[in-house]
């Protein structure tokens, strides 16, 4: 039962992170591609710091620093993990977006401009749909990694599934919960893999 609750926490963390970090990643991506140098520098340094430090460390910083430095303890462990995950994944997603956007040929912009579209129209109607197609497979990689990264929440004792399993092991001196939690991950990732495969199939139009 505790194991199911732990799985609930895992799924919630996964879904919440995905929902918030996907759009946030696009914003970070615009930042790092900005024509204004200071914004570009800030965005790139930020991405460098976040991608350059372990997620586990970031989780600890988000949770402990408010209490240590400002005497203002973070009340919710889950929120702390959520914030750290969103920031981390937004940075990774932003680089995937950037790669996707830069891979769209120059001619697509020019053709759209010739048709009299505004810059916003060009981006959302012409470029973005092509980007989505191109980045689907790197995205699925990152999303699957996210499923398993949720287990890092245990460093600050958020009761995700492995932490819950450990609790059962220590309470009842049983070993099987670890194997069950492995099965949960496997099934979860299996479902995601199927979803991504279906999405790729659906988006495979205009393929030459």
């Amino acid at each position: 039962m505790t194991l199911l609750e732990g799985f609930g926490t895992t799924v919630l963390l996964f879904a919440a992170t995905l929902v918030v970090s996907l759009p946030l990643g696009l914003i970070v991506c615009f930042g790092s591609m900005s024509k204004v140098p200071p914004i570009r520098w800030i965005a790139r340094v930020f991405v460098w710091i976040i991608r350059g430090t372990p997620l586990m460390l970031q989780v600890m910083v988000v949770f402990y620093v408010p209490g240590l430095v400002f005497d203002y303890p973070m009340r919710s462990r889950f929120i702390a993990v959520f914030i750290a995950f969103v920031i981390n994944y937004a940075c990774y997603f932003s680089e995937i977006y950037r790669g996707g956007i830069e891979s769209v040929p120059r001619g697509q912009y020019e053709a759209a401009q010739v048709l009299g579209m505004t810059k916003t129209q060009v981006f959302f109607r012409i470029i973005l749909p092509q980007v989505v197609k191109r980045i689907l497979s790197p995205m699925s990689n990152e999303v699957i990694t996210l499923v398993k990264d949720t287990s890092l929440a245990r460093v600050i004792a958020v009761e995700e599934i492995i932490f819950a399993a450990q609790g059962i092991i220590n309470s009842y001196a049983l070993i099987w919960p670890l194997f069950y939690s492995g099965a949960f991950y496997l099934i979860f990732v299996g479902v995601l893999t199927l979803i991504f495969r279906a999405a790729e199939k659906k988006l495979s139009y205009y393929k030459v």
Binding site: M60, F63, Y64, V65, P66, G67, L68, D71, P73, M74, R154, V155, I156, A157, E159, F163, G167
Partner: peptide, 17 residues
């Protein structure tokens, strides 16, 4: 009662968690 990660017990105290 708050379950903590034993490695972090001192930092948990100091950060008022």
């Amino acid at each position: 009662f708050q379950v903590v990660n034993w490695d972090n017990k001192i930092i948990e105290l100091q950060s008022y968690n």
